[in-house]
Amino acid sequence: MTQFKAITDFDGSRKASGQQARVEDTRAAASDFRKHMLAGPKARYFRSFDLVRLPYPSRYGLRNAFSREKWVEYLHIQNRLFVVQFDTPEGVKTLLVSPSDHERNGETPFFRRLQDKTPDFITNLALKRQNTVPSIIAALGLKPEDIDYITYDHLHTQDLRRWLGTANQPALLPNAKLLVHRQEWASALDLNPYQADWYCPHGLAGIGEDKIVRFDGSIMLGDGVALVHTPGHTEGNHSIVVHTDEGLWVTSENGVSADAYAPHLSAASGVAEYAKALGVEVIINGNTLENSVDQYISMVQEKTIAGPSARDPRFPNVFPSSEMTPFWAFPGAKPAFYVGEAHHGTLHRP
């Protein structure tokens, strides 16, 4: 079993009694970690792929900040897959970040209810399936057995059985193992009703222990790739950090757009005014509110690690796994800065 290197930069950074003191301690730790990452090697390959575009409640995505919430109930978010390759002492490893099985994820209770009460013509208008994980793997010239790892910043809506297999279903990715924070896995197996509304029923059922790699804290996977514990959205939430030619990309669903990490610049209705009025520096994606204080700290942590975007340095180099995207039917929910896509390095085909 591969032994990943523990990241200790954030140890104790959230222990202060004062909440803002925790923010500043974590910001300082994130700044040091950023320097360490940038001084090290880059990942071999990083590329984003669109999977599905779907509606998501504005009251969650831009928590309390969106001024048109009464009239514009939804945002449009673009869900993505990221293919990452990196060097290790054991050779090149291939990681899929957020390989959502969107053909099954619709059974998540919240989205199942939404779909059942929405007329088909509206669903067909607002929901656009673009690619599947298997089709992307094939288009890259990779084989399913070439995938070493999969990971998600958290397990909301995810059904992993097709990828990892069960006793009754062969794994589509036969060699892949799930990298998951220990607390996220434990939580997903024992949910309270509020949280269960956002997890796919039976999505983890029957997956063998040999397919699961739990980790604690934050870890380096190999050259230029880290998983950093960023709790709040869920207790075991982690962010994926990848060193590329565009600097450090930081991916999670703590925020639904770069606007959420620089809200004073946001073009979404009311967000900049809300941020100014409250003095907040991030807007959390708050559908479950497991710990909004920690999530706020985690978003500051993420944007500090990311640093300024090479495309527009006013915004941090964050790449949300589900990014708010313009859609004519949801007026006022257009972001000021849209990442869209990224492609760095050369793919290694075993």
Rank of each mutant, 00 (worst) to 15 (best):
T2A: 10
Q3F: 06
Q3E: 13
Q3C: 07
F4I: 03
F4L: 11
F4M: 11
F4D: 01
K5T: 15
K5E: 15
K5L: 11
K5S: 15
A6W: 00
A6M: 09
A6V: 14
A6I: 12
I7H: 05
I7W: 07
I7T: 06
I7C: 07
I7Q: 08
I7P: 07
F10A: 02
G12M: 01
G12P: 02
S13M: 08
S13D: 12
S13Q: 10
S13Y: 06
S13I: 05
R14N: 09
R14V: 11
K15R: 12
K15D: 12
K15T: 11
K15Y: 01
S17I: 12
S17A: 14
G18R: 11
Q19M: 12
Q19Y: 10
Q19A: 09
Q20W: 11
A21N: 14
R22C: 09
V23M: 06
V23L: 11
E24T: 13
E24D: 15
D25A: 15
D25V: 05
R27T: 12
R27W: 09
A28W: 06
S31M: 12
S31F: 11
D32S: 13
F33A: 14
R34H: 13
R34T: 07
R34C: 09
R34V: 01
K35R: 15
H36W: 00
M37A: 15
L38A: 04
A39D: 14
A39Y: 09
G40S: 15
G40L: 06
P41L: 02
P41W: 00
P41R: 09
A43M: 05
A43K: 06
R44N: 10
Y45C: 08
F46S: 14
F46I: 03
S48C: 08
S48P: 00
S48F: 04
S48H: 06
F49S: 02
D50E: 14
L51P: 03
V52P: 01
V52N: 00
R53M: 12
R53T: 13
Y56F: 14
P57V: 00
R59W: 00
R59S: 11
R59D: 09
Y60E: 10
G61P: 07
G61F: 10
G61S: 15
R63P: 04
R63Q: 10
N64P: 02
N64F: 05
A65V: 08
A65I: 09
F66H: 04
S67D: 11
R68M: 13
E69I: 14
K70Q: 13
V72W: 00
Y74N: 15
Y74R: 10
Y74T: 04
Y74Q: 13
L75A: 00
H76K: 15
Q78I: 05
R80S: 08
R80F: 01
L81P: 02
L81Q: 07
L81C: 07
F82K: 12
F82V: 15
V83T: 07
V83Y: 08
Q85H: 00
Q85R: 05
Q85T: 04
F86S: 09
T88Q: 06
T88A: 04
T88Y: 04
T88D: 06
P89K: 10
E90D: 13
E90Y: 05
G91S: 08
G91V: 10
V92F: 07
K93Y: 04
K93D: 04
T94F: 08
L95Q: 01
L96I: 05
V97R: 08
V97A: 02
S98V: 03
P99L: 02
S100H: 12
S100K: 03
H102M: 06
